[in-house]
Design a protein around this nucleic acid. Structure first.
Lengths: 136, 136
DNA sequence: ATCATTGCAAAAGGTTTGCACCAAA
DNA sequence: TTTGGTGCAAACCTTTTGCAATGAT
């Protein structure tokens, strides 16, 4: 919990219980939750927290580059406290979203930059299929 | 125009002026328009077409695999009549979305499949940066 | 003639905003 | 004490839905 507080201070963000709890929860899940999911889970421990606060807090965390927003093809966003540019893989059956850490991603990034003459800043890579568990 | 009609017939979709015009326009643009853009452009030539029809038609075309839906991080979808799984590159300044045709994409796809044991069906790859024109 | 598609309006998400109150610094 | 965050409700925007009228086969 201390760590979380310090990171917020470092970014010159006011430290509030709401911000702490949202950021802390995102750092401790691999499920890439949506706003609705974050809200319902935190309601259990923070009954007064409003949906608007969740939205506002996430926006602040994204702007501070502490959290990234992803869109996997649903009509809502999901959030990920791992901000390094890593690909995501989505199971079309159970709809779970997993992080991928692949060593050849950077190489790919630079190849694209070279071929296009864009000045690239980041990438979002999504892979869709059936996960090993759901294949049975 | 004949081509468009035939493709719809082939997919056993009823051929209507609305479907023809939406599909035809998507096949003849590289701008990856949103529903709103498609609707306003087509209103000029088809004043009675409704927004709901644009949504329903796009849904039909996506299901028939004649059009793909992409989400580039906006809170709305864009549409692309090139259905082969190619990456997109987005300029963060002018917000234009371009197709990328890279020979090493397939290789990348199979590498991910091998490493993850997923049975992959498709991928969505987005690159973000500043385009050559906007760099000046 | 049949049955799917269209257009309209209403409803349903998801997200944003304005403002009074409250809490962090 | 000041500044900015929170919570509530209303508004907004994109997308979906129900249904009667219309059009494609």
């Amino acid at each position: 919990m201390l760590m979380t507080k310090e990171i917020l201070r470092q970014k010159k963000l006011k430290v509030t219980p709401q911000r702490l709890s949202i950021f802390y929860m995102l750092k401790n899940t691999t499920s890439h939750p949506s706003v609705e999911t974050i809200y319902s889970l935190l309601r259990e421990t923070h009954p007064t927290m409003s949906l608007a606060t969740v939205y506002k807090t996430l926006s602040v965390l994204v702007d501070a580059n502490l959290v990234q927003q992803i869109n996997v093809g649903e009509n809502s966003f999901r959030y990920d406290a791992t901000v390094s540019p890593h690909p995501h893989i989505i199971c079309s059956k159970c709809n779970e979203v997993h992080d991928l850490h692949l060593d050849f991603v950077d190489e790919f990034f630079y190849k694209v930059q070279e071929e296009t003459n864009f000045k690239l800043s980041y990438q979002k890579l999504y892979f869709y299929g059936i996960c090993p568990t759901c294949q049975h």
